[in-house]
Amino acid sequence: MRSSAIRARLASFQNAYVVALRLRAQTGAAQYIVRTENPLQPVMVTSQWPRDGEILLAEIH
Rank of each mutant, 00 (worst) to 15 (best):
D52Q: 12
R2Y: 13
P39H: 11
R22K: 14
T46I: 02
P42E: 06
G28D: 11
A30Y: 09
G28E: 12
H61A: 07
M44V: 04
E37T: 12
R7D: 04
M1H: 14
T36P: 01
T46M: 02
M1E: 13
Q14E: 07
R22F: 09
I6E: 02
Q26S: 15
T36L: 01
Q41R: 08
A16L: 06
P39T: 14
V43Y: 01
L21I: 05
M1Q: 15
A30W: 10
G28Q: 14
Q41P: 04
L40I: 11
L56S: 03
V34Y: 04
R35T: 00
I6K: 06
E59R: 13
W49C: 08
W49F: 13
Y17W: 14
R24Y: 11
I60C: 02
R2V: 13
A58D: 08
N38F: 04
E59D: 07
R51Q: 13
S3V: 12
M1Y: 13
V18Q: 05
R24N: 08
V19A: 08
V43P: 02
T27A: 11
W49H: 12
E59I: 12
A20R: 09
A29V: 15
F13T: 02
I55F: 03
A16D: 03
S47T: 13
Q26E: 15
R2I: 14
Q41T: 07
N38C: 05
V43E: 02
R9Y: 00
A20I: 11
A29Q: 15
E59K: 13
Q41H: 07
G28S: 12
L21H: 06
P50Q: 07
E59T: 14
L56R: 04
A29W: 13
E59S: 12
Q31T: 11
W49V: 14
A25E: 15
G28F: 12
R22L: 12
W49E: 14
H61G: 06
A58R: 12
R24F: 09
H61S: 07
H61T: 09
V34S: 00
Q31N: 10
S3M: 10
V19N: 06
Q14L: 01
Q31I: 08
N15E: 08
E59M: 10
P50D: 07
A58C: 09
I33H: 00
Q48L: 10
T27P: 11
Q26A: 15
I6Y: 04
Y32R: 06
I60Q: 03
S4W: 10
G28N: 12
I60K: 03
R22G: 08
S4A: 11
R9C: 00
